[in-house]
Amino acid sequence: MRSEPDLPLSSFQARRLYRLVAEAFGEAGLVVEVLGDHVVDERGRAHGLRDLAAACATEPPAAWPQVVRRHVRAAVSPAPTLADLDDATLEASCVLRLLPAAAPPTGTPPPNASPTTSSPSSRSTWATRR
């Protein structure tokens, strides 16, 4: 494990971060190779360490294990889908868009939309994330 000059940490702190990251990924069932400013898991996915190093640099050393575990859990957890979100969260994330009469035909989704339901009139309802 080598120290990465782009991380806002001393060489000693970087080595500690590398060890904590490898342990946290191991707890999540993944083996990683530390490559300075990122790690690569056995599936070939790269996970950057710059943001995590910056977060750790602002915390006392005793808090680092928890910061690292929380970061790694978030990195390896699947992103929620629309089906995973409750109604209040969906409602808070929806944006009403008024389109001119020359807009695409009804049922044509905006570029970043996902279908949520179909109404009895066969028009699709589309949810877009902010």
Rank of each mutant, 00 (worst) to 15 (best):
T117P: 00
L99S: 15
A24V: 05
S119L: 15
T81R: 10
F25A: 03
E42H: 04
R97C: 11
E27S: 07
L90M: 11
P78Y: 04
L98D: 10
A22R: 08
A127L: 15
T58G: 11
A55I: 08
T128I: 14
A127N: 03
P100S: 06
E42R: 01
R45L: 09
F12C: 10
A101Q: 08
R123I: 14
R15F: 02
A53I: 03
T128N: 03
E33V: 12
V76K: 00
G48Q: 08
R50M: 12
L99I: 13
F12D: 13
G36D: 00
H38V: 01
P100L: 08
E42M: 02
C94I: 15
A28T: 01
A101P: 02
L49D: 05
R97N: 07
V72K: 00
D86A: 06
L99W: 10
A74R: 09
E59W: 00
R130Q: 13
L52C: 05
F12H: 13
V40F: 01
S114T: 15
E91L: 12
T116W: 15
P105R: 14
Y18L: 06
C94M: 07
S93M: 15
P111H: 04
A113S: 05
D41N: 09
D41Y: 01
E23Q: 10
Q66D: 15
S77R: 11
L98W: 10
R70Q: 15
L30G: 00
S77Y: 02
L7M: 06
T116L: 14
R50L: 11
G36S: 01
P100K: 10
V21F: 00
P120L: 04
A88Q: 14
R73T: 14
A88G: 13
A113P: 06
V68A: 08
H71P: 09
R123M: 12
G29N: 03
L96A: 13
H71D: 11
V32G: 02
H71G: 04
A83K: 11
A62D: 14
P78Q: 08
P8E: 03
R69P: 01
F12E: 11
A101N: 00
T117E: 10
V39T: 07
P60E: 13
V68S: 08
R129P: 09
P109Q: 02
R123F: 09
P8R: 03
P111T: 05
V39C: 09
T89D: 10
A79L: 12
S121C: 10
N112K: 13
L85R: 07
V95M: 13
A113M: 08
A62R: 11
A92K: 10
